[in-house]
Simulated scan of single mutants.
Amino acid sequence: MQIHLSDDGVPLYQQVVQQIQHRILSGQIAGGAEMPAIRTLAERLRVNPNTIARAYRELEQAGLVEKRRTRGTFVTSSPTAMSSQKKREAIEPAIDQLIVLARGLGVDGKELSQWVLRRDEHMQRQGGEQS
């Protein structure tokens, strides 16, 4: 699992949560898949194991992963069955970043909304997620 950490001011555990969350919700990590062990992922990313443990707790609270005693951490079987509130909480950071970028470029909310809707329609026609 590739995770890229940066020193942009976002706490490391949040960067881990956001990237794993994206991979789960986009289907890159399938329901039922086993997550790397905390120590293994911490060593790979060169971070304290507590950072990964905290990220996994956040993902568990969001209903995306579950701990199975003595077996490890696994992606829940139906991560897309999250509550509406959890879905909103999952997507809000990306929306916030988009709004900040748009404002910096002088794009107002109405125009941004139109662009998002058009992009969504385009992606639906293309059959899924675009990079």
Rank of each mutant, 00 (worst) to 15 (best):
M1D: 00
H4C: 09
L5C: 06
S6P: 00
S6I: 10
S6T: 11
S6G: 02
D7A: 11
D8S: 06
D8H: 00
V10C: 00
V10F: 06
P11D: 03
Q15K: 09
V16I: 05
V16D: 01
V17D: 03
V17F: 03
V17P: 02
V17I: 09
Q18P: 03
Q18K: 06
Q19Y: 09
Q19I: 08
I20Y: 09
Q21S: 00
H22S: 11
H22T: 06
R23D: 09
R23S: 05
I29W: 08
A33W: 01
A33N: 07
A33G: 08
A37K: 14
T40W: 11
T40N: 14
L41E: 01
R44A: 14
R46E: 15
R46P: 07
I52M: 02
A55T: 09
Y56N: 01
Y56Q: 00
E58R: 13
E58P: 04
E60A: 15
E60L: 12
E60F: 04
Q61P: 07
Q61D: 08
K67Y: 10
K67T: 13
R68A: 01
R68H: 05
R69L: 12
R69V: 10
R71Y: 06
G72Q: 03
G72H: 02
G72F: 05
V75D: 01
T76D: 09
S77H: 12
S77C: 05
S77R: 14
S78C: 01
S78W: 04
P79T: 02
M82F: 06
M82W: 11
S84I: 11
S84T: 13
Q85K: 14
Q85A: 15
K86C: 10
K86I: 04
K86D: 08
K87T: 11
R88I: 13
A90L: 05
A90I: 02
I91N: 09
E92C: 06
I95K: 15
D96I: 03
Q97L: 12
I99F: 14
I99C: 08
V100W: 08
L101W: 14
L101I: 04
L101P: 06
L101V: 04
G104C: 01
G106M: 02
G106I: 07
D108A: 07
K110W: 11
S113Y: 05
Q114N: 11
Q114F: 12
V116K: 08
R118H: 14
R118E: 11
D120V: 15
D120C: 14
E121V: 12
R125F: 10
Q126T: 09
G128N: 02
E129C: 07
E129S: 00
Q130P: 02
S131L: 13
S131R: 15
S131F: 05
